[in-house]
Simulated scan of single mutants.
Amino acid sequence: MSDNAKAGRPLSPHLQIYRRTLTMMMSIVHRITGVALYAGTLLLVWWLSAAAVSESYFGFVQGLFGSWPGQLVLLGFTWALIHHTAGGIRHLIWDTGRGFNLASVETGARITLAASILLTIALWAFAYGVM
């Protein structure tokens, strides 16, 4: 018998017990996008460093980022940046003491998710339109 059971304390539930909710998943995704932004920043530094090294090396890195796998990574980076920013704005609203009732929390999560997807699509459409 565990020490918790002997003391009459409840056992800590694990992930198989919890019912997955949108807000729980958004919290997890917010953390994941934070890590992805760190990796994406390293790619940005690589791109800027390549520009400083030589024209041929910059062309090589630009070619990698311009390939379809590179574009897919950049699309993911763009979405992570926008999603993480939208989540940060949601947290900023919470810091003012607003939006803590369950309906507002759920609505905020849905708005954050929808806005991040729509803004990513709009930004990439604009970028391709300019090119």
Rank of each mutant, 00 (worst) to 15 (best):
M1K: 08
M1A: 12
D3H: 03
D3E: 11
A5W: 02
A5M: 10
K6T: 00
K6W: 00
A7C: 00
G8P: 00
G8K: 00
R9H: 11
L11C: 00
L11Y: 00
P13K: 01
H14M: 07
H14V: 10
Q16D: 10
I17N: 02
I17A: 00
R19F: 03
T21N: 05
T21Q: 09
L22Y: 01
T23N: 15
T23Q: 13
M24V: 01
M24Q: 08
M26F: 00
I28D: 10
H30V: 01
T33P: 06
T33H: 03
T33F: 08
V35E: 11
V35Y: 15
A36Y: 11
L37N: 13
L37V: 05
L37T: 02
A39V: 15
T41M: 15
L42V: 14
V45S: 05
W47Y: 13
S49Q: 01
S49A: 14
A50M: 07
A51N: 10
A51L: 08
V53L: 12
V53R: 04
V53P: 00
S54R: 03
Y57S: 15
F58N: 12
F58G: 04
F58L: 14
F58H: 15
G59N: 15
V61G: 04
G63K: 01
G63Y: 02
L64S: 03
G66I: 02
P69F: 13
P69H: 12
G70W: 05
Q71V: 08
L72N: 08
V73I: 15
V73T: 08
L74E: 04
L74M: 14
L75Y: 11
G76Q: 02
G76V: 03
F77A: 12
T78P: 07
T78A: 15
A80Q: 06
H83F: 15
H84T: 13
T85W: 12
A86P: 03
G87P: 09
G87D: 14
G88Y: 05
G88P: 08
H91T: 04
H91I: 05
L92K: 09
W94T: 02
D95T: 07
D95G: 04
D95Q: 07
D95N: 08
R98K: 11
R98I: 12
G99M: 10
F100W: 15
F100Y: 15
N101E: 09
L102W: 06
L102K: 12
L102H: 09
L102Q: 12
A103M: 12
A103Y: 11
V105W: 04
V105F: 06
V105I: 15
E106A: 13
G108E: 05
G108A: 06
G108L: 05
A109N: 07
T112E: 12
S116C: 07
I117E: 07
I117S: 07
L119E: 09
T120V: 10
A122G: 11
L123P: 00
W124M: 13
A125D: 03
A125H: 07
A127L: 15
A127Y: 14
A127I: 14
Y128V: 12
Y128Q: 13
Y128S: 11
V130C: 06
M131P: 01
